[in-house]
Design a protein around this nucleic acid. Structure first.
Lengths: 173, 173
DNA sequence: CGAAACCAGTTTCGAAATTGACTATTTGTT
DNA sequence: AACAAATAGTCAATTTCGAAACTGGTTTCG
């Protein structure tokens, strides 16, 4: 009766017990979301450990730099929305990045309360260099799927997200 | 030229700039993983905020109780593996849960270094009650997809996870 | 115009997770 | 049998992040 459960046999066990012993109705929902979270955790942890930590950056710092890089000069509020972080998190992350000379932070001309974030030249250079490695490792994850499978995956996840976005879900402030 | 980007238009913008301005090759990989992480974040944040925080438990505490509940008496090491947390995280999480009388922690009979975790009667009762609400809210997320779509989603995510699991990925220690 | 409501960003503080060191036990080797 | 290496769990230090309070600028409307 040796167990030595792994993730997949645990999901199976959970399914069985939730249904037969406790009579819960939505095991497939549990299975979908367990798998979703596990996949996201694995990928994120791998990219952070393999690409970003060795260069002295956190996963969150990368995400912030990434949106500022590609979405041009940006208010912190928009950066928070695009990354899914809170405004406070953006504000805290900014400090060391500005100090390291990757991020520029200039007062907004039209709104004295606000601020515009952009990458410095050094920041752009670092993102180009980091993203090369990041993107290769991303590819290492997704190449297990055909292109069509990847498109289906994006479509299904999109459906999951947007269906709920309309209802009572609050996004992170 | 008003922007007001949201997540989807940002993904589109990122795709375009990464391809045309910087010549990166694997935009679809980026799109898949951005969407994956966003979906996972949204779902997790929603469940934590709607179900678990109001009851005074963190998302991580719930995950730990969940695996101990369903995978029976368990060593901390196994609990860490199944939840994807580090052993230290499990050890830290355990303390308040034992103090609150939800978790039992008894020395292992066959290995003096180890320990067996199980739910107390109160712990079991709380999980049954919490999971009722949790599962209903999970269903609220997944019901946007047909049952077949959900099975495809699980299958694709499984493919993503297991293909890479064999290679040089280190799981969290 | 001026007060009140509102909104943007920051700061502070607390919760939680990871890394690495440490203790105790077990396993493997000679 | 003895000792080295590996393993389990815990603890301490550091990092990260968010909630809530706070500061200051902007808009609304009498």
């Amino acid at each position: 009766m040796e167990e030595e459960l792994d993730f997949w046999s645990f999901v199976e066990l959970a399914n069985r017990r939730l249904a037969t012993e406790y009579g819960f109705r939505h095991q497939l929902a549990t299975e979908v979301l367990l798998t979703l979270n596990r996949a996201s955790d694995l990928v994120t942890y791998d990219l952070e450990a393999a690409v970003h930590r060795p260069r002295g950056r956190s996963w969150s710092a990368f995400r912030l730099l990434f949106v500022v890089w590609l979405a041009g000069p940006l208010e912190p509020k928009s950066a928070a929305r695009l990354t899914g972080m809170s405004r406070a998190a953006v504000s805290n992350l900014m400090k060391p990045l500005v100090a390291d000379g990757l991020l520029d932070r200039v007062p907004d001309e039209h709104d004295g309360r606000s601020v515009q974030l952009s990458l410095t030249e050094a920041g752009r250079a670092e993102m180009v260099s980091v993203f090369r490695e990041h993107n290769e490792r991303e590819f290492g994850w997704t190449e297990a799927l055909t292109e069509e499978e990847q498109r289906i995956l994006v479509m299904l996840l999109g459906k999951l997200i947007t269906a709920r976005a309309g209802s009572d879900t609050r996004s992170r402030r």
